[in-house]
Amino acid sequence: MQPLTTEQIRAVIARGKLKDTIFKALGLFCLSIGLLVIVALIVDMFIKGSERFTLDFFMNFASRRATQAGILSAWVGSLLVMLVTALAAVPLGVAAGLYLEEYAKRNWLTHIIEVNISNLAAVPSIVYGLLALGIFVYQFGFGQSILSAGLTLALLILPIIIVATREAIRAIPAMIREGSMAVGATRWQTCRYHIIPYAMPGILTGVIIGLARAIGETAPIITIGALTFIAFLPPVPFTGEPPAGLFEWVMSPFTVMPIQIFNWTSRPDPAFEVNAAAAGFVLMVMVLSMNAVAIYLRYKMRKNIKW
């Protein structure tokens, strides 16, 4: 067997490079399908729903007549549920992340917690709905309320916030910690005055991504039995007769944007498709702008790290 001639080698290389080029085209093609889907979705919903983009659509309750139906109770419900979710998930998630990074010893308990968090991320969201149905709705007697929904979504996005917190903390160099400890600060003082402030942008990014995920979640909220037709608003938060009245709103029945879209999508009357498209567009704008803010924040952060 004799070595290949230069011509043969060049032929082999040419063939290899052709495959490279074909693959590059394939990669760009697959990426552009992704982009195409996003664009197609937004354009389709915008065009189909355009006739509903009036103030009335945002200020009307649901109705049996498509042209009069609006998303008032849905967007208000989504905002209130997000408020509960954020109030529950942010402190819990940040505290858990802080514990795992700054306090936890390498023992079986830590190990169990860590394995748990990564496994929870793979649990289907509808299973959280069943958990909430069994525990929050019936066991705790919260009923089909904003509180039940908010807590359910909080549990769902907890792993996202914990992981974001841990990553943000891990990016802080040890010298900051040592510097603080060296002047006599306790562990908590170090966390409070150094670790948490420095990790804040990273945590914020995780919180936004988590909330963007939560605001679009449908299945667990349907599972706890959110109503699909609501023609009233919950009381304005923190305004009722104290002390009990302040929290009246959390026990109120509600609906949210994704459920409203689902409801309109599953109606046989095509007039409701228009409503579904319009509401879908509004939801997309909410979710995508939250994501865009998170991506921008992360980008800024990467540019600004100076240690």
Partner: peptide, 14 residues
């Protein structure tokens, strides 16, 4: 990332 962030109900509509 944006594609992964689209709510599944919107994908259902799609």
């Amino acid at each position: 990332e944006l594609l992964g962030g689209i709510p599944t109900i919107v994908f259902g509509y799609f």
